[in-house]
Structures are given as structure tokens and as C-alpha cells.
Amino acid sequence: MTDRHSAAPDRLHSLPRYRQPLPRNSVTRHIVVMQSAAACSPVVGELEQPLVLNGENADFSRRLQRALVSATVGSHLYIMGDEAFIWRIYGEARSAGLENDEIDMTHTIAGARLVYCVHCGLTQAAGPESLLICIGCDVGLEVREHFSRRLGAYLGVCTNPDQPYAGVRS
């Protein structure tokens, strides 16, 4: 992350930055996690004997957990998919003990993103729209240009602060 003053003026510093992954020569084990075959990046073909996990496979969750808990020093994780998928896998990887510099995240397909409702605390999948109704508390939310790496979600705040619970009480 960069500080606010050196960030691009048209982009807030809290927004995630994605880039194409680069093959790393010092890595002893490449773990590629992709949401679907369509999410695969060409760099996978350049990796030496990668473990490739496809989110569409029936045993994906079990294989992912096994790969994450068995990752040792020298392993590198490449995550490819939409934002909701990327940040869910990132959270699992961090919980399993991988460090930030051992993880590359590449936003390769359009799809869902996660939005955190500040009113009820629910994190929900949403599209690219800037307005939505929270499925947890029925409050109209504006999705802010602020991203929490800890939550892996954008911040959703009430669109009408004068009537924050208008949807619930009507």
C-alpha cells in the first residue's frame, strides 16, 4: 500500500491494487487457486510444477485447506478470480499462516465483490452498483470507495442518515 500523498490522484489509497502475477524463481512450491478455468492467468503455464486448485471442482475446499496448512517456507500462493473469491481465499491463507509477500492476488474475472454493512455487521456479496439494500437489516446502503483488507470488503453506509432504518420500519 502507498500513502495517500503518493497514490494516484484518481484512486484512493485504500482501494485494492491488482497486478498480473510474476513467476518467482526462489519459490519451491507454487500453489495456484483459481475461481474457475476462465480465471486462469497465462503465468500459470510458466510455473514449474504448480499445484492448481480450481474452485469449480467438488473437492476444492478440502484440497485448498490441505494445501494451505501444508504450505512451508518457500511456498507462494497465486489467487485468481473475482474480488469476492480473491479476498475470501486471501483471508483463509492468512489464517493458515501465509504472509502478505507469499500471496499474489489477480482480479481476472468480473463478478461479485463483498460489501460490509456498518449498521448490522453483515458482509454480503454484491455487484458493481454503488447502491444496494442490505440483506441483513434492509437499510439502503451506499458502497463507499473504501476497502478494508482485514474484512476483504468495501464499506457500505446508510444512503439516508436522516432515516437510517426507513426500509425496516415502513
Score class of each variant (00 low, 15 high):
residue 28 T to I: 07
residue 28 T to Q: 12
residue 28 T to K: 12
residue 29 R to Y: 05
residue 29 R to V: 03
residue 29 R to W: 02
residue 29 R to H: 13
residue 29 R to T: 11
residue 30 H to N: 15
residue 30 H to T: 12
residue 30 H to E: 14
residue 30 H to W: 09
residue 30 H to A: 14
residue 30 H to I: 03
residue 31 I to G: 06
residue 31 I to Y: 02
residue 31 I to N: 07
residue 31 I to M: 03
residue 31 I to S: 05
residue 32 V to Q: 08
residue 33 V to S: 03
residue 33 V to Q: 06
residue 33 V to K: 02
residue 33 V to I: 10
residue 33 V to L: 04
residue 33 V to F: 01
residue 34 M to C: 03
residue 34 M to A: 05
residue 34 M to S: 04
residue 34 M to K: 05
residue 35 Q to P: 11
residue 35 Q to L: 13
residue 35 Q to W: 02
residue 35 Q to Y: 06
residue 35 Q to V: 10
residue 36 S to C: 11
residue 36 S to P: 08
residue 36 S to K: 10
residue 36 S to Q: 08
residue 36 S to N: 08
residue 36 S to I: 08
residue 36 S to A: 13
residue 37 A to V: 14
residue 37 A to D: 13
residue 37 A to Q: 15
residue 37 A to R: 15
residue 37 A to G: 13
residue 37 A to Y: 10
residue 37 A to S: 14
residue 37 A to L: 14
residue 38 A to M: 09
residue 38 A to P: 02
residue 38 A to G: 04
residue 38 A to Y: 01
residue 38 A to Q: 13
residue 38 A to R: 14
residue 39 A to Q: 08
residue 39 A to L: 10
residue 39 A to K: 10
residue 39 A to D: 08
residue 39 A to F: 07
residue 39 A to T: 11
residue 39 A to N: 09
residue 39 A to C: 11
residue 39 A to Y: 07
residue 40 C to P: 00
residue 40 C to I: 01
residue 40 C to F: 00
residue 40 C to S: 06
residue 40 C to K: 11
residue 40 C to E: 09
residue 41 S to K: 02
residue 41 S to C: 13
residue 41 S to I: 05
residue 41 S to G: 04
residue 41 S to T: 12
residue 42 P to W: 03
residue 42 P to F: 03
residue 42 P to K: 09
residue 42 P to M: 09
residue 42 P to V: 06
residue 42 P to A: 08
residue 42 P to T: 08
residue 43 V to R: 09
residue 43 V to S: 11
residue 43 V to M: 15
residue 43 V to N: 09
residue 43 V to I: 15
residue 43 V to P: 11
residue 43 V to K: 10
residue 43 V to Q: 13
residue 43 V to W: 12
residue 44 V to R: 14
residue 44 V to A: 14
residue 44 V to W: 06
residue 44 V to T: 15
residue 44 V to Q: 13
residue 44 V to H: 10
residue 45 G to C: 05
residue 45 G to Q: 05
residue 45 G to V: 01
residue 45 G to T: 02
residue 45 G to D: 07
residue 46 E to A: 14
residue 46 E to K: 12
residue 47 L to R: 10
residue 47 L to E: 10
residue 47 L to G: 13
residue 47 L to Q: 12
residue 47 L to S: 12
residue 47 L to V: 09
residue 47 L to M: 15
residue 48 E to Y: 02
residue 48 E to D: 13
residue 48 E to S: 14
residue 48 E to T: 13
residue 48 E to H: 10
residue 48 E to I: 09
residue 48 E to F: 06
residue 48 E to W: 02
residue 48 E to M: 04
residue 48 E to N: 12
residue 49 Q to K: 15
residue 49 Q to V: 05
residue 49 Q to M: 10
residue 49 Q to L: 08
residue 50 P to R: 04
residue 50 P to S: 03
residue 50 P to D: 04
residue 50 P to H: 02
residue 50 P to N: 03
residue 51 L to C: 08
residue 51 L to D: 08
residue 51 L to P: 05
residue 51 L to A: 06
residue 51 L to I: 12
residue 51 L to S: 07
residue 51 L to M: 08
residue 51 L to W: 01
residue 52 V to L: 08
residue 52 V to P: 02
residue 52 V to Y: 00
residue 52 V to N: 00
residue 53 L to M: 06
residue 53 L to I: 02
residue 53 L to E: 03
residue 54 N to I: 04
residue 54 N to V: 05
residue 55 G to A: 08
residue 55 G to I: 07
residue 55 G to P: 09
residue 55 G to R: 03
residue 56 E to K: 07
residue 56 E to H: 01
residue 56 E to P: 02
residue 57 N to E: 14
residue 57 N to D: 14
residue 57 N to G: 01
residue 57 N to F: 04
